[in-house]
Each structure stands twice: as C-alpha cells, then as structure tokens.
C-alpha cells in the first residue's frame, strides 16, 4: 500500500516538473508537431481498421440478438451509433492505443534513461521531464479526440457496409437508425473522455519510462507496467467520468 502512495507521489512530482515553464516555446512547438505525427498520425491506420471491423461486428451482433417483431430494425443502426460514440471510440480505442502508444513512449523514454540521454539533457540545463514528456501529452490530448471522431465515423460506416454486404438488414433502416434521437452531448462526452485518456496514457507511460533503471530487461518491464497500469487507470476514470458527465 505504501508503495502505491509512493508511486502516486512520484508521479505528481514528475508532473510538476513536466508542467513547469518550458525553456523555449519554439522548440516545444516543433516537438509537439513531431509527436503528433509519431503518436497521432501513426495511429490512424490502426484506429481505422479496428473501428470498421468493430462497427461491422456490433451491427451483426445487434441483428442476431435484436431479432424481434417488437423492435424496429432501425434500432440496430441506433445501437451501433450509440455504442461507437459512448464507449468504443473513446474507451476501447484508448485501451488499444494504450498498448501501442503507451508501450512505445515507456520504452522510448526508458531507453533514453538507461543510455544516459536524459542525464545528457539534464547536464545541458534542460528540464528533461518537460522537454520529453510535455510535447507527447499535448500532442496526444490534441490528437486523440480527432482519432475518436474518425473512429466513430468509420465504425458507423463499417456497420452500414456489413448491412449492404450481407443483406442481414435493410441498409436504409440502418441509416434511419443512426439519425434517430441524436444527442450532440454524447459526442462532447466522448471527446472529453478521449482527451482524459490521452493524458493518462502518455503521462503514465512516460512516468514508468522516466524512472526505468538498469538494463533493457527493465525497459521491457517498465513498458509492460505502463500498459497495465495505464489500462487500469483508464477503466477507473471511465467509470468516474461516466458518473460525472452522464448521470
């Protein structure tokens, strides 16, 4: 228990260093753009592939399980849309990206730690925590909501395509369903969640990488811990945010 409090304390001390005043804004702007490409753009393909298949699978599952004369077929489109917006595109995509982006950040920063690259920055008088971590956090918090929008769109298209391809339902009913009872607040909720999850993924994985010690084995362990802890924290905050924002 004491170890958990120690970890949390060290995490907040690190975040204090991360959010201290940057050395030179222009350098950070350049690094943020670089990180947006590394963290954000490079995740577009994975997000798109997963979203299209999940959208299609949700539609298929709904078709199979909601087969009833009392339930209009358009409800399938509605359910697919709501699932994508409320849960999949923010939470599940975040969990998947926690594996991809989180492990990449933890191993990158962990390797920098054990090869003394972070020490080299400190010797130069650079706030290494801020220089390395802040651009990643800013890039992810800005870019993940865009990935969420992309995921919602592609997931809904995936559902439509499976309806067209398999004739499991009438595609126009699916389109009617996705237009029913649309609440724009659901999108806001989803975007808030994805921004929070982006912060969790980048900061938690950077934390484990930054304090990695020893050799490459330790970097691997730090990377694994970053993904596991990041995923658990995402689930906890998913619950908290749902309670706060929807209920």
């Amino acid at each position: 228990m004491l170890r958990i409090f120690e970890l949390i304390g060290r995490y907040f001390i690190l975040m204090g260093k991360v959010f201290s005043r940057p050395e030179k804004a222009v350098i950070y702007r350049r690094r943020i753009l670089y990180e947006m490409e590394a963290i954000g753009l490079d995740s577009v393909g994975l997000t798109a592939i997963i979203s299209i298949f999940i959208g299609a699978v949700i539609t298929l599952q709904m078709c199979i399980n909601l087969e009833s004369p009392f339930v209009p077929e358009s409800m399938i489109g509605y359910a697919t849309r709501e699932t994508m917006i409320l849960e999949f595109s923010s939470t599940v995509v975040a969990l998947i990206l926690s594996g991809k982006v989180g492990s990449s950040i933890a191993s990158e920063i962990g390797t920098m730690r054990i090869t003394e690259q972070i020490d080299a920055l400190e010797i130069m008088g650079v706030n290494s925590a801020s220089y390395l971590i802040l651009p990643k956090i800013v890039a992810a918090v800005c870019f993940f909501p865009l990935l969420t929008i992309l995921s919602i769109g592609i997931g809904i298209v995936g559902g439509y395509l499976i309806a067209v391809a398999t004739d499991i339902m009438i595609p126009s009913n699916y389109v009617d369903g996705i237009l029913v009872d649309f609440k724009s607040y659901s999108i806001v909720y989803s975007l808030i969640k994805s921004a929070v999850f982006a912060y969790i993924i980048t900061s938690v994985s950077a934390f484990f990488g930054y304090y990695a010690k020893g050799n490459s084995l330790e970097v691997g362990r730090a990377s694994t811990r970053a993904v596991v802890v990041g995923s658990v924290v995402i689930m906890i905050f998913n619950l908290i945010l749902t309670q706060l924002l929807l209920i």
Binding site: E23, K24, E108, M112, E116, Q117, A120, M124, G125, V126
Partner: peptide, 28 residues
C-alpha cells in the same frame, strides 16, 4: 550552460541527426 559532458555511450539523442544533436544546446 558552462558544462559539457561526454558520456560513456555518447548519450546522443537517437531520434535526432548529428546536426540536431549538436545544435540542441544552441536552440535552447
């Protein structure tokens, strides 16, 4: 800013070119 250090393994930033590595202190 008055200190230069050469580490055992070089400690060059892997994601930066030679020029970017050397230029970093000047940029900052």
């Amino acid at each position: 800013k008055d200190i230069g250090m050469i580490f055992q393994g070089g400690a060059l930033l892997d994601s930066s070119t030679v020029e970017e590595n050397i230029k970093l202190p000047l940029d900052l």
